[in-house]
Write a protein that binds this DNA or RNA. Structure first.
Lengths: 223, 223
DNA sequence: AGGTTCACTTAACAATTTGATAATACAATT
DNA sequence: AATTGTATTATCAAATTGTTAAGTGAACCT
């Protein structure tokens, strides 16, 4: 059963949405401000978050930006809700990583269609996809753990994501540009040595040598 | 590079969309009616189709329904475009399997945000390891490996690219100028003996003699 | 607030790999 | 034998990556 978090400061909107979503079989929680939305998102782990743009304490876009930084919310669906229907807000919303945008007044049937359309795109088989086992190496993306040769090793976020990426397609050579855009995103600019340093830390922490360097090309994982 | 098909009967809309999409690096084709949209979809295999709802011969929703029945369009992204902004059309559109809905007038920046947001959700179908197998020689461009007579041999970047190039079209004679422009690019100028030296290294490392020299012309791979 | 810790980034330099060239040797053709 | 084109080898410069240490800023904890 899919979980939906709705954040809006207007009580009646919360009720309408909750009613409609529950009627379609979704599990719903609500929040009435930005701070509480973040807290509930963390505790509730929803599959979809519907965010009003204008809310007390933290507006929807800020909430979205904050959440998208956390790896566990990278894949969560986010829909914005707003009365404002000017371009720049919409663009800002979508660029902060939202999946859709809906302007008030809310038309429940339209909303439901959108919600269903979004869920159609997201494969629900998360359990298998989140665990990668390669010989001595076991990566659990949900639990955020790495076990190498029976030993559990704690990796920092970037290290973890980097190793995950390489492990997601072992033997494939990932170009440095590929790694950058996958892990750092296209708009962040980091120095040349950043990737190397993370690679080094992984090699060091896991005491492994199966991350191969292909000079002038990139890195690959090979057990 | 992602491919986008736009179908609309208004020429100016086609142009605006095409311009904006191409500016972001998409490959664009257009159609100006429903029938032609279906034909182009089949021949062009786009990753995204933008459909005007109101078009001659077959409207957008009919096109969408038709395409969604074909297995090869199950995963294709579809966005509707329309002047009508009544609920029932929107709902019908989304329920016929579209991924999003955009009402005219088109605001290019909003459209681009939506397009980008959708593509973010659909992981680009990682190509299967592209391999070239020629008798005893196996070149894996994804893993960046060469296996010759069962033995894995490490080649430097230029060597690898050079061998790949020759293997990409065995028996074809590659002119020296061709090799230069393919591997070194047009703006880099290198001396006359550079290619020879790399060819020699490959022959040496692989201990092979199937790179034939055609004096005064170029090289070819022949097993 | 103030201080501490930690992840992340950058800088600086060392180590390594690589690619290009020159010099020379060889082979084929005229 | 002279000419033209290619192979071989050694050498050096350039490009690339590895490593260490230090700086930065956010989160956390009094």
């Amino acid at each position: 059963m899919k979980k939906v978090l709705i954040a809006d400061d207007e009580q009646d909107i919360l009720e309408i949405l909750q009613f409609n979503l529950e009627a379609e079989g979704y599990l719903v929680e609500t929040a009435d401000n930005g701070i509480s939305a973040i807290e509930k998102a963390i505790s509730f782990c929803p599959d979809l978050i519907i965010l009003d743009v204008m809310m007390p304490y933290k507006n929807g876009i800020e909430v979205c930006n904050h959440l998208r930084k956390q790896p566990e919310f990278k894949k969560t669906l986010i829909i914005f809700l707003t009365a404002k229907s000017d371009d720049s807000t919409e663009v800002k919303g979508l660029e902060s990583g939202a999946d859709d945008y809906l302007s008030k007044p809310i038309r429940p049937r339209v909303l439901m269609s959108k919600v269903n359309a979004l869920f159609r795109r997201v494969p629900s088989n998360e359990k298998e996809a989140d665990k990668i086992i390669l010989g001595d190496l076991e990566i659990n993306r949900t639990a955020y753990t790495v076990i190498y040769k029976g030993e559990e090793i704690t990796l920092a976020r970037k290290e973890f994501e980097l190793l995950s990426l390489l492990a997601s397609n072992p033997k494939k050579v990932f170009l440095r540009t590929e790694i950058l855009s996958q892990i750092w995103g296209t708009d962040v600019i980091v120095g040349d040595r950043t990737i190397d340093v993370h690679i080094r830390k992984i090699r060091q922490k896991l005491n492994m040598d199966c991350i191969k360097t292909i000079k002038g090309v990139g890195y690959k994982l090979e057990l």
